[in-house]
C-alpha cells in the first residue's frame, strides 16, 4: 500500500514542469490584455482603475480558491452562488433582527460552512455525484434565500462594518489584502501539505488513493466545507461593499468562478491545476470586463468574448 502512496507522490513531483508553461501563457495573455486596453483607454493603467479591478474580482477570487481544490480533486461545486446569497441574507436578517453585527458575521460564515458541509456529506460520505448534488443545493438554497428576504434587499449596517468591503489599509483595499492573503495560504497548503497532495491524488485516481489508506471521505468533505466557508467570506465582503444584502446576490457567479479556474489551466476532470493559474484566470476575467467597460463595449459582446475564452480554455484539455 505504501508503494501506491509513493507512486502518487513521485508522480506529483513531476507536475511543476507542466504548470510553468501554462502559467507563462497566462501571463502573456494578461500582459497582452493590459497593453491592448492601455492603448484603447487613457484611464486603464491608472492606480484608481487597477484598484477598482482588484476590488471587483474579490468575490470571484475568494470563491475560486476552494473551487480550484474542488476541481483538482475531480469534483465540482455549482452551489457557491446560492451559498453566497444564503450567507449574505443570513447576515442581513440577523443584524436586522437585533443581533450584534460581528456575531451576525460569524454566524453567516457558519451558515456558509454548514451549507458546504451538506454538499460534502452527500458527495463524500454517500458517494452522490457532485454535479447533481450541487445543482440540487443551488436551487434549494436560492429558494431559501427568497423565503428569508421575501424578495426585498436588506440594508442599513453600522459604519464599522463597511470597512471590510470599502476600507483601505496603506492605500490598498482591505478586501484585496484578504483575498491575496488567502490565496497565499491556500497556495502553501496545496504545495506543502499532505492535504494538498491528496487533493491532486483524488483527482488522478481516487481508487488508488483509497487503497493507499488515505481517508478519501475526509479530504473530499473538507474541500466542500472550504468551498462553503469561502462563499460565506465572499458574502461578507459583498454585503459590506454594496451595503445591501439582496436575494439575487451571487446569482450565476459559479459560472464566472469556474471560468476563472478553467482559464487558469485546471483540468475539468481533476488531477491537474494550480492556484497561481486560477489567480491569473481571475485577473484575466476582471481585466477583460473592466477594459471592455472602459471602452464602452456593449455587455452583449463581452459575454461572447468570455464564452470564447472558456471554449479555448477547455480545448487545451482534450488529452
Amino acid at each position: 500500500m505504501n508503494l501506491v502512496k509513493e507512486e502518487v507522490n513521485t508522480r506529483l513531483k513531476r507536475l511543476p514542469s507542466i504548470k510553468i508553461n501554462t502559467i507563462s501563457i497566462l501571463v502573456i495573455l494578461l500582459a497582452g490584455l493590459l497593453i491592448f486596453f492601455s492603448t484603447q483607454s487613457p484611464y486603464f493603467l491608472t492606480t484608481l482603475n487597477i484598484t477598482n479591478v482588484l476590488v471587483q474580482v474579490t468575490t470571484i477570487g475568494l470563491i475560486a480558491i476552494p473551487m480550484t481544490y474542488v476541481i483538482i480533486s475531480g469534483a465540482m461545486d455549482l452551489s457557491v452562488g446560492s451559498i453566497l446569497g444564503l450567507s449574505a441574507v443570513t447576515l442581513g436578517f440577523l443584524y436586522e433582527s437585533g443581533t450584534n453585527i460581528w456575531v451576525s458575521v460569524v454566524l453567516a460564515l457558519v451558515v456558509g460552512a454548514l451549507a458546504g458541509a451538506l454538499n460534502g456529506l452527500l458527495i463524500a460520505r454517500y458517494k452522490m455525484q457532485a454535479i447533481v448534488v450541487t445543482i440540487g443545493t443551488l436551487v434549494m438554497l436560492r429558494g431559501l434565500v427568497y423565503i428569508i428576504t421575501k424578495g426585498k434587499p436588506i440594508s442599513g449596517y453600522p459604519d464599522s462594518f463597511y470597512f471590510l468591503g470599502q476600507g483601505k489599509v496603506l492605500g490598498i483595499p482591505f478586501s484585496v489584502i484578504v483575498m491575496m492573503a488567502l490565496f497565499s495560504i491556500a497556495y502553501i497548503l496545496i504545495k506543502k501539505t499532505r492535504i494538498g497532495r491528496y487533493t491532486y491524488a483524488l483527482g488522478n485516481n481516487e481508487e488508488a488513493v483509497r487503497y493507499s489508506g488515505i481517508n478519501v471521505v475526509k479530504v473530499r468533505f473538507l474541500t466542500f466545507v472550504m468551498s462553503g466557508l469561502f462563499a460565506g467570506i465572499a458574502a461578507i465582503f459583498y454585503v459590506s461593499r454594496y451595503a445591501s444584502a439582496q436575494a439575487s446576490a451571487g446569482d450565476g457567479i459559479e459560472l464566472d468562478v469556474i471560468t476563472a479556474v478553467l482559464i487558469g489551466g485546471t483540468h475539468i476532470f481533476g488531477g491537474r491545476g494550480s492556484l497561481v493559474g486560477t489567480f491569473l484566470g481571475v485577473l484575466i476575467i476582471g481585466t477583460l470586463r473592466n477594459g471592455l467597460n472602459l471602452m464602452g463595449v456593449s455587455v452583449l459582446f463581452q459575454t461572447v468574448i468570455l464564452g470564447v475564452l472558456i471554449l479555448v480554455a477547455v480545448s487545451r484539455q482534450n488529452k
Partner: peptide, 30 residues
C-alpha cells in the same frame, strides 16, 4: 438585473471620467 455587476459597471465608467451618470438601480440601497 444583477446589482453587483451594475455597480461595477458604474464604477468603471467613473474611472473613464464621464461627466454624468443616469442609473436605473436594481437595488436602490446598494
Amino acid at each position: 438585473t444583477d446589482s453587483a455587476q451594475q455597480i461595477n459597471m458604474i464604477q468603471d465608467m467613473l474611472t473613464r471620467q464621464v461627466n454624468g451618470v443616469g442609473v436605473a438601480p436594481n437595488d436602490p440601497e446598494a
